[in-house]
């Protein structure tokens, strides 16, 4: 457990990325999220915009940054659906804020932590969306929790591959 808590200065440093990365990585996540289900059909168990939100939130360690990025990406995701705009937006906003808040307290290079964070935050996102649609909006919406679990697992697995790749894009002092 001690290994999971940051005790070095290096573990608490704020990572920075070039501006183009902040533009193109979220955009690529949105495009792939919309395009890959055409190839994979119903087996596209992933949420790439949420994954990108979590990654930048925990690496920037800035709740405001995570909040705004989550809000923008979530609203764009809503823009591609036929549902009211703001469902993904609120869910990703909350997830971005919490990920940044938790990222301060954990060693984010640890793969196990990354997997757990991705899994937990994806499930949290599903629960938030269910709350927003069912409770706040009063719309009927059935949720297949098996699919949501698979989606969380898919995000956790994809994060293991994508996060190290994104680590290479950070700005070195």
């Amino acid at each position: 457990m001690q290994a999971l808590i940051p005790d070095y200065r290096r573990d608490l440093e704020i990572r920075r990325y070039p501006l183009l990365v902040y533009v193109f990585v979220p955009l690529a996540a949105l495009v792939l999220q919309a395009w890959l289900p055409r190839l994979m059909g119903r087996y596209a168990y992933m949420d790439l915009p949420l994954l990108v939100t979590i990654y930048f939130a925990i690496n920037r360690r800035s709740p405001i940054h995570g909040t705004l990025l989550g809000a923008v990406l979530g609203l764009m995701q809503d823009g591609l659906t036929q549902r009211p705009i703001g469902i993904h937006g609120i869910a990703n906003t909350v997830v971005g804020f919490l990920a940044a808040s938790i990222g301060i307290r954990l060693v984010i290079e640890n793969n196990l932590i990354r997997m757990l964070l991705n899994f937990a935050f994806t499930l949290l996102s599903s629960a938030l969306m269910l709350f927003i649609v069912g409770m706040m909006l009063g719309l009927s919406w059935q949720v297949n929790w098996v699919d949501e679990l698979l989606r969380a697992g898919g995000n956790a697995a994809i994060g293991l591959v994508v996060f190290p790749f994104l680590d290479r894009l950070q700005t070195r002092d």
Partner: peptide, 8 residues
Amino acid sequence: GTSGSNQS
């Protein structure tokens, strides 16, 4: 393309 969401 698609919406990218199982709920939509």
